[in-house]
Amino acid sequence: MRLSFSSKVIVFIAVIGLSLVAGARAQSSNPAPLSATTVPQTDQMQPAELAKLLKPGFGDRPVLFQVGSFVMFQQAHIPNSAFTGPGSQANGMILLKKFAAPLSKKQLIVIYCGCCPWNKCPNIGPAYKQLHDLGFTNVKALYIASNFGDDWVSKGYPVEKGE
């Protein structure tokens, strides 16, 4: 079957159009990570409040997940916290799901990062959403205004090094 010139033009335009749509979809499958500012204020925890919870004899300790970079975790992290991978990356989300799986949905979980100022942290928002979507009802995000060094370590709160 032979196509007329106008039919060929229509087919060409359709192919280009479909390519553009496919390209746009591919781009939107890798959107910017959710900002930490998406965490409701009621689910944010101040460093002083967490430090109090970590004191011996205070009661049940929360489960602590560091959802940032491993290099930072090795340099300093909150004692007894687990590195669950960057919340902004797919492998981090898989690891977080794995760490959270055995926990009760009512367990108090505190996630923290501190790689960057709160409004620029790419890890807290996705990790919070993931835990929320998994049905955890008591998830708090440690509010680190500037970075983990200034807002936790320099304040003299407990810190561990290594893995």
């Binding site: 290099v71 930072m72 340099q75 501190g114 960057c116 970075n147 060094g149 200034d150 370590v153």
Partner: peptide, 10 residues
């Protein structure tokens, strides 16, 4: 990071 005093925020 430790050599430079701990780089706990970038």
């Amino acid at each position: 990071g430790a050599l430079y005093g701990g780089l706990l925020g970038l």
